[in-house]
């Protein structure tokens, strides 16, 4: 095989590996609150394929990844889930978003396991989600 064919093969493999990013459902809870209920809500929703959930201090942040064709309604889905969370945890600052940024950053936060960083980063993410421009 020539170098060009190898290159094409390499590109195809690189592109296809993007399809198999399985994060699944992750929950990190550093508070006394019951995080299992929130996790159950996310897992029971057939429209959500991956989700990361972080509960820390008085803040809850959830990054969702919805099925391909549900992406058209991802803001509605995030709002519905957020409303359910608000009923479960009154008094908590809740941010639920189906935006990739929230999903990626929350996942990164969980993987870094640096608890001192949590509040600062969570505040920043909540602010980013609200930005309209």
């Amino acid at each position: 095989m020539g170098i060009r064919n190898w290159l094409i093969l390499g590109i195809i493999i690189c592109l296809l590996t993007g399809c198999s990013s399985k994060v699944g459902f992750k929950t990190v809870n550093t508070t006394e609150e019951d995080g299992k209920q929130a996790e159950a809500i996310l897992e029971d929703d057939p429209r959500i394929k991956n989700a990361v959930l972080l509960i820390h201090d008085d803040r809850l942040i959830a990054g969702l990844r919805v099925n391909t064709f549900d992406r058209f309604r991802k803001r509605t889905i995030a709002k519905e889930v957020g409303d359910q969370f608000k009923e479960l945890y009154p008094g908590m600052d809740i941010t639920v978003s189906a935006d990739s940024k929230v999903f990626l950053e929350t996942n990164k936060l969980i993987e870094q396991q640096n608890k001192d960083n949590y509040t600062k980063k969570m505040k920043k993410l909540s602010k980013l989600v609200k930005e309209e421009t």
């Binding site: 978003s97 935006d99 990739s100 940024k101 929230v102 990626l104 920043k124 980013l128 989600v129 421009t133």
Partner: peptide, 10 residues
């Protein structure tokens, strides 16, 4: 999205 403070929307 990865390297700056942009969300999917912005």
């Amino acid at each position: 999205i990865t390297f700056f403070d942009f969300t999917e929307r912005t």
